[in-house]
Amino acid sequence: MKPRVAVFSFTCCEGCSLTILECENELLDIVNLVQFVRWREAMTETSDDIDIAFVDGSISTHSDVRKIKQIREMAKLVIPIGACAYNAGLNALKNRYGMGEVKEMVYGPDGAQFDTIPARPVSAVVPVDFALPQCPIDREEFLRTVRDLVLGRTPRLPDYPLCVECKRAGNDCVFWKGMKCMGPVTRAGCGAICPSNGDYCEGCRGFVDHPNEQAHQETLKEHGLTVQEVMNYFNLFNSYDESQI
């Protein structure tokens, strides 16, 4: 019996779901390993009999809270995918404002009718079994995860900073090019895709388990950032704070 897989989306752009759909060369191999039974972006059929639920998006409405709890009841494994689901990502930026203010800012006077609560990662509402970070998810990491789950291996995320992958790729440090980078505190696993293509790391994979945040604040200041700018770098993808919920 192939594992029955569902993909669910909450508050997000559904780019992580789309990343799965875009595994065009691998989709046939994937459907040899698993059976997709529910996935609104890809199919019309639906099912409540689910082994693995991949979930993208943050939980940001009361209805989201109810739905993710139902999914947890239905599925044997719940695996958040992508920054929004993993650590609330960009969505958490709204949490520093009052919800009334946010609705007014985005929708004007009509905003009052919307149900919105501070954005949170899936793991803040239900227990999760594993999670894939990044905005959007890394295709290879997703494929390895599916393979590992089918083979009964425990998938793992790297727990070292992005600098490792920059060095393996032979990149020069982006700081030497005059840019600022979140790589030294960010979890590797994307293959340093942004620095390898002339950009800097924004930290979309979240931090390593024990980031040296103090050291990195000092580094960013040493490279000319103001305290506010340092906070902006830190907060873009990593501002989720339980105490704001």
């Binding site: 070292y160 900073p161 600098c163 490792v164 060095k167 393996r168 440090c173 790589g183 030294p184 505190v185 390593v208 024990h210 980031p211 040296n212 103090q214 050291a215 990195h216 000092e218």
Partner: peptide
Amino acid sequence: AERCYSCGTCVLT
């Protein structure tokens, strides 16, 4: 070590 990132730059290079 207080300011070390454990980023591995020293060992990899």
